[in-house]
Design a protein around this nucleic acid. Sequence first.
DNA 1: CTCTACTGTGGGAGCGCTCCCACGCCGCTT
DNA 2: AAGCGGCGTGGGAGCGCTCCCACAGTAGAG
Lengths: 342, 342
Amino acid sequence: MAVSGRQTGRPTLEEVAARAGVGRGTVSRVINGSPRVSDRARAAVGQAIAELGYVPNRAARALAGARTDAIALVIPETESRLFAEPYFLDIIRGVSAELADADMQLLLTLIRSSKERQRFEQYLSAQRVDGVLLVSVHGDDPLPDLARELGVPAVLNGRRSAGERVAYVDSDNVGAGRSAVGHLTGRGRRRVATITGPLDMYVARCRLDGYRQGVEAAGLPADDRLVAAADFTEEGGRRAMRELLDRCPDLDGVFAASDVMAAGARGVLREAGRRIPDDVALIGVDDSAVARLMDPPLTSVRQPIEEMGRRMARALLQEITGPGPEPCRVVLPTELVVRDST
Amino acid sequence: MAVSGRQTGRPTLEEVAARAGVGRGTVSRVINGSPRVSDRARAAVGQAIAELGYVPNRAARALAGARTDAIALVIPETESRLFAEPYFLDIIRGVSAELADADMQLLLTLIRSSKERQRFEQYLSAQRVDGVLLVSVHGDDPLPDLARELGVPAVLNGRRSAGERVAYVDSDNVGAGRSAVGHLTGRGRRRVATITGPLDMYVARCRLDGYRQGVEAAGLPADDRLVAAADFTEEGGRRAMRELLDRCPDLDGVFAASDVMAAGARGVLREAGRRIPDDVALIGVDDSAVARLMDPPLTSVRQPIEEMGRRMARALLQEITGPGPEPCRVVLPTELVVRDST
DNA sequence: CTCTACTGTGGGAGCGCTCCCACGCCGCTT
DNA sequence: AAGCGGCGTGGGAGCGCTCCCACAGTAGAG
């Protein structure tokens, strides 16, 4: 009953051909969905495949053909520390869902050192994947350009700058900031501050822009003392909140560019005796578990993360099969989730 | 300057051999670290490789040899919903770290439907990976046994039952329960309840066993009314907490088998006017972000998740190279992280 | 009735490796 | 002095596929 070992004879295409009474070429054509096959042959091959339980050998395929049926999802460790972690899992979910339908494999690559980065660059240049998905938000990340030079299709999650030339899927971060501030001002807040992410990240600058637009739209005066830069971490959020409280004790609303920073801010506000939302309304971005479980539950701007993953995968698959002239540029809308903190 | 396209001539082993003035066999031996090579040849080959920027072709290797240099990490979607999500990211981190050193690829497979499950089973039987890492906590999961039958090395994260026959890396869930309850009783709590995970999961039963041991160790009477089963979700935690409060209004401590359930419990306790920790001390498991950010910050039992990932990968690599007679059975200790909820 | 233009087909030639056999060459024993 | 074992080596065979060329058969055009 037990299979005898690793080398156990899996049926080959040749055997399928023999059983179906056709040539190798025909079987190959059937498998790859070529139209140039008679119905009779197709049926015979289909049956032989079923009877033999034939599964094509990927390695042979990759060697003979020019593709590998695999794509890499690259997550630089720096990012994974910054973002709320569930973010990546949702991205992975979306990517994986889309890939499964295309029968492609997902290769996950975490890059946490320059050595690993180098190894991955080798990978890329060795054409060992058909394409790459890059979570790349730092403006100076060279990986996307490297991929382009090597002719490896690539799709980014997020942009590195306004003029991003590589295909990307992003969420509407400006809109997120704008609607967050709009929500705050809509509830009568007049002194709305913001805690930003690191400003070398385009995503952080976008959310800040959105904040400014929101302030202006409400007819409030712009005041740079209401802006404090942080780094997407809880501790950064604490520091920024202290700073803001120091500079503008009269603030009555805070837009934190991430839930995690909002959590830090909440701690400081509480220590300072400010009630949420009574004295200060607080809003974050991500709609993560943290937001739901915080006390009080945090109003937050939701990004369609899983959908971004899906779209990225779809865009990449398309670029692999037929590289269109225009790289994919998708910006997905965000959505306000109102809870008790505002 | 630009590389001309996808097919651009990457150097092959043959070219390296020519340049180094040796035969193909010798180059192959150098690359694979065979000792049967003279220093002179080794040096020449090394130089040729460097000059040409040679990177071996994986597909060719996989086809010729019997291995693929890739392993799969399988995450059933059911699990990913149940566990706190950061759990998987930490596992992935550990696995990835260990794999990078071995120059192995990590293939991530999310299984969310029976169709995808079937596809993965095909994968397995097609020997397309050298081994599998399975996150498998349900007692009836057939995947581990399938892998065994197919002769594909497998390592589980968690056990399906006490008599697990497949190699595994788990954390000391009994110890986790025991120390959690010990901590509670150590602080003078006498009526300690528990909210368990789904009892068809071994991990949930273990934590419950630990709870019982802790209660007994403290010389307290066992009382089944203090035990409420839930399902590792926040809502489940809420329900269970209501139940407990109903049955035993005099309880003064709660051990929730996950942080997320503890979060649910906290909400109910607060609604019932119980102060934490003054009236009821609360403790969870996972030491997740949720615990840190909860209000009050939640005391929790930490599992060394990333280390588990690392150990799994190491065990699998070992099993791949030389299948020892004894499957790996590792149980890692947990650690109490005390915060303000107790 | 021949000529062209398909469409469906079989099978050769590789893809770039690893495995392994066979061969020289060395230093050692008898 | 001839014989022996080993080491380092070269290169053939083959892994299972895809690509593509060549060929039969059929059908339509002249």
